[in-house]
Write a protein that binds this DNA or RNA. Sequence first.
DNA 1: CGTAAGACCTGTAGTTGCTGTAGGTGCAAG
DNA 2: CTTGCACCTACAGCAACTACAGGTCTTACG
Lengths: 149, 149
Amino acid sequence: MDTATYAIGDLARQTGTKVELIRWYERDGTMLPPARTEGGHRAYTQAHLDRLAFIRHARELGFPLDDVRALLHLSDDPDRPCDEADAIARQHLGAVRSRIARLQALEAELARMVDACGHGKVGACRVIQVLADHSHEHCIHPGHGGTGL
Amino acid sequence: MDTATYAIGDLARQTGTKVELIRWYERDGTMLPPARTEGGHRAYTQAHLDRLAFIRHARELGFPLDDVRALLHLSDDPDRPCDEADAIARQHLGAVRSRIARLQALEAELARMVDACGHGKVGACRVIQVLADHSHEHCIHPGHGGTGL
DNA sequence: CGTAAGACCTGTAGTTGCTGTAGGTGCAAG
DNA sequence: CTTGCACCTACAGCAACTACAGGTCTTACG
């Protein structure tokens, strides 16, 4: 039988999530509210555990919670075509790839900066100079800041 | 003569920063409070403009504000050895490199997920299955979440 | 010189995804 | 039956902004 229930701490242990985070997901609508014991403690089922595992895995993969909720909603209805899930994943892949590209440009700039440091005084330090350099001739232009992740 | 002063909007335009962000940096202690006009408007000098450019550049490079403040503090004293600045930059470079590595692992996982999607029903969708997969056999373990950037 | 647009002011609340606290109650093992 | 941990609610705070609301100052035009 799997009518067993889990306390919030069990879910936390099994998914590597903090207890407060699980409660926060519930307030947030990402986790469904479980039944309660007489004393008011949350009593989760296997379905809750699965849902939380799904959420945490998607979050580890960098999906924003909005996307996670959309994916959860899709997965609740197994007969729907999965194009939407695919689209979300594809879009996320695109965001990850552009993030990598920008970080690599940044890595090059930082590496150049660190290489050029002559370990003398701050007044002659390339690290400080590059940061102070207003002209940005050598600089990447990372767009407007951050699409996800 | 460069006794000219700048209004907050001038700084915003010249550095591509939003006006509220400049005020926020001031409340925050990252920007120094400028003189005021009789009517109470902020009157910035060239030094303020330079400082803001420094801040924005460092932020674009992904340095957390704490690091930016440390770097600003160092750059205020040009006779100090620049090892500290170098250390901050090096540490940041390390963080960027580990971030890239993790994103590349993630990219591979996402690409695999998307490739495996058969465009059928959600019930058979690899995207959903991989996310629901609790076992994480194939999964990266990104440590505890995110050092900077 | 008057007025109206628009830039500026302060203060506060919201964003995302959590984390941590205070102050109290339930539950289970010894 | 007690002790101590797990649990409860509610709220405050983190980074680093962004976005109001509701008012005041400056400036340019007529």
